[in-house]
């Protein structure tokens, strides 16, 4: 396994649209496991390949307290969305910013698993929020896009300052 580097907002690479995965092979499985370790290490509850600079439609999620229920979604599609729910979200690519975002409360998704087989699942609550947050990443979209311009600029300024300090 390996820990991967997570890109930080406002890195333009976070704005790229990820490409569908044609074949689920060992490279993809390796990437998925590295992403999972990176996510656990952070620690976070979801990570999209875009965030580790891989333009592939792959996300990993684990919302369990015990961190023993990883979920891998390859080429995920939202089939149905229902209701509304507010949740204070944060993102591994936007350190130290937590903001309320409104998303669908219940969803149905279709995706491939690590064996390349198609499956469908329903989700609600935090899992539903997380899946939508990660699918957004694959579209080049970030949770800060749901905020007011002013709030987004403030976060951007702060992170740019951070990055300069690191250099």
């Amino acid at each position: 396994m390996a820990l991967l580097n997570i890109l930080h907002f406002p890195d333009p690479r976070l704005r790229q649209k990820a490409l569908p995965i044609k074949k689920v092979d060992d490279d993809i499985r390796q990437l998925a496991h590295d992403m999972l370790e990176t996510m656990y290490d952070a620690p976070g509850i979801g990570l999209a390949a875009t965030q580790v600079n891989e333009q592939k439609r792959l996300i990993v999620i684990d919302v369990s307290e015990e961190k023993d229920s990883p979920l891998f979604l390859i080429n995920p599609e939202l089939l149905v969305t229902e209701g509304e729910r507010d949740f204070e979200e944060g993102c591994l690519s936007v350190p130290e910013a937590y903001e309320m975002v409104t998303r669908a409360d219940k969803i149905r998704v279709r995706a491939l698993n690590l064996q390349g087989e198609t499956f469908e699942m329903e989700a609600d609550g935090i899992l539903a929020t997380c899946i939508q947050h990660e699918i957004d990443h694959l579209e080049g979209k970030l949770f800060v896009d749901y905020l007011s311009n002013l709030k987004r600029q403030r976060i951007k300024k702060r992170l740019e300052k951070h990055q300069k300090q690191k250099l």
Partner: peptide, 22 residues
């Protein structure tokens, strides 16, 4: 994604555990 409850600040021991694990 990350939620607030999951990103508590670290103490010396939890931080060292992460380093050793890495």
């Amino acid at each position: 994604m990350i939620i607030l409850a999951k990103s508590k600040t670290l103490c010396a021991r939890s931080a060292a555990a992460l380093v050793i694990h890495r």
